[in-house]
């Protein structure tokens, strides 16, 4: 038990090594793709946190937008450094998430899904309505890219490393949450709400916690995005963007921590490869979403799980049936 598990540490080292090497092997344009990919990585993993309690929301990209707008306001008005705007945006998004989820807790399933959409849309309409301070329908521009001493994050390479560091920290924390008692409580209360209550788990509180944590990390993703784009636009956080996030999640599945990551990797590849298709691309994505929901409702995650079980069953042969009886 006390022997440190070297396998994940080794894996982590490989990921870091590859991650550090990538900018030297690709063009500047591809570095931008990787930056966006890592921001999306934080976003998909953060979406999975409330999803494990059964709360699929339609407001997650709006909460990302809360992070982005907070960053825009903080860095434009108060000249805060990127090292402050990112964590503060996360906190603000987390608080907004908590406020939003307080009434939402009363709903479940489909009701939660569309009620979260309504509240998210309300926030988005506030950005559109109030030109001051949110910039109205066209959003805000001129957000500084951030800097560390003399290193300007406008250059893709330094920003790449910055985002990589933030993404790694976020993912490690989210992984620890998933593996911890809290993460297991999330899945447990989804499996059997009544049983969870009966052993003293305050289900509404934990659902709120999951939603708040998801919002916190979505806020980080939003802050990183705002600094990169230098602008925020209410259209970036509308339901179309939300559907793309849902596609990543549905394709990947939510059973394990790795599901949404797999979904994002696959869909990012498809997104980049399908560039020649131009305007036909949404059709490909819509078709993929329908395909997975109809034929592979558990996503890639579930598919791998089933394949692994089949291989294991074949390997151990009769041994498995003995245990089952």
């Amino acid at each position: 038990m006390s022997i440190p598990n070297w396998k994940p540490l080794f894996l982590l080292a490989v990921v870091i090594a590859v991650g550090c090497a990538i900018p030297f092997m690709v063009r500047a344009y591809t570095i931008e793709i990787f930056i966006l990919f890592m921001i999306n990585l934080i976003l998909v993993c953060s979406y999975r946190i409330p999803a494990t309690t059964g709360d699929w929301s339609l407001s997650h990209v709006v909460l990302m937008g809360v992070g982005a707008y907070t960053t825009a306001l903080l860095s434009k008005w108060f000249d805060l450094t990127i090292f402050l705007t990112v964590p503060l945006s996360a906190v603000v998004a987390g608080i907004v998430g908590f406020i939003m989820v307080t009434p939402l807790i009363r709903t479940r399933g489909f009701g939660f899904f569309i009620a979260s959409f309504a509240l998210g849309e309300l926030i988005r309409l506030i950005w559109i309505k109030f030109r001051y301070p949110f910039g109205g329908p066209r959003g805000m521009i001129g957000i500084p890219n951030g800097e560390l001493g003399s290193i300007d994050f406008f250059e893709p390479m330094p920003y790449y490393y910055f985002v990589m560091a933030v993404a790694l920290i976020c993912l490690i924390i989210m992984y620890r949450i998933d593996q911890s008692r809290i993460g297991k409580t999330f899945t447990a209360l989804y499996t059997d709400e009544g049983l969870a209550e009966s052993v003293g788990i305050d289900v509404p509180r934990y659902r709120a916690l999951a939603f708040g944590l998801g919002a916190f990390f979505a806020g980080i993703a939003g802050a990183l995005l705002a600094h990169r784009l230098g602008a925020v636009d209410p259209k970036n956080f509308d339901v179309t963007t939300m559907v793309y996030l849902i596609i990543w999640i549905v394709v990947g599945g939510t059973t394990t921590f790795w599901g949404p990551i797999m979904g994002l990797i696959l869909m990012t590849f498809i997104f980049e490869w399908s560039r020649p298709l131009l305007e036909w691309r949404p059709l490909l994505f819509g078709g993929t979403l329908i395909f997975f929901l109809v034929f592979l409702p558990g996503g890639l995650d579930d598919l791998f799980f089933k394949i692994r079980n089949k291989i294991m069953a074949r390997k151990s042969g009769a041994g498995v049936s003995d245990v089952a009886s």
């Binding site: 489909f110 849902i246 949404p282 819509g286 979403l289 329908i290």
Partner: peptide
């Protein structure tokens, strides 16, 4: 699954827009 049908028709919305 209500949600699955809802999300799948979001995919359909994309398809119809493109077509």
């Amino acid at each position: 699954n209500v949600l699955a049908g809802f999300m799948a028709t979001a995919g359909l919305a994309f398809i119809l827009q493109v077509l």
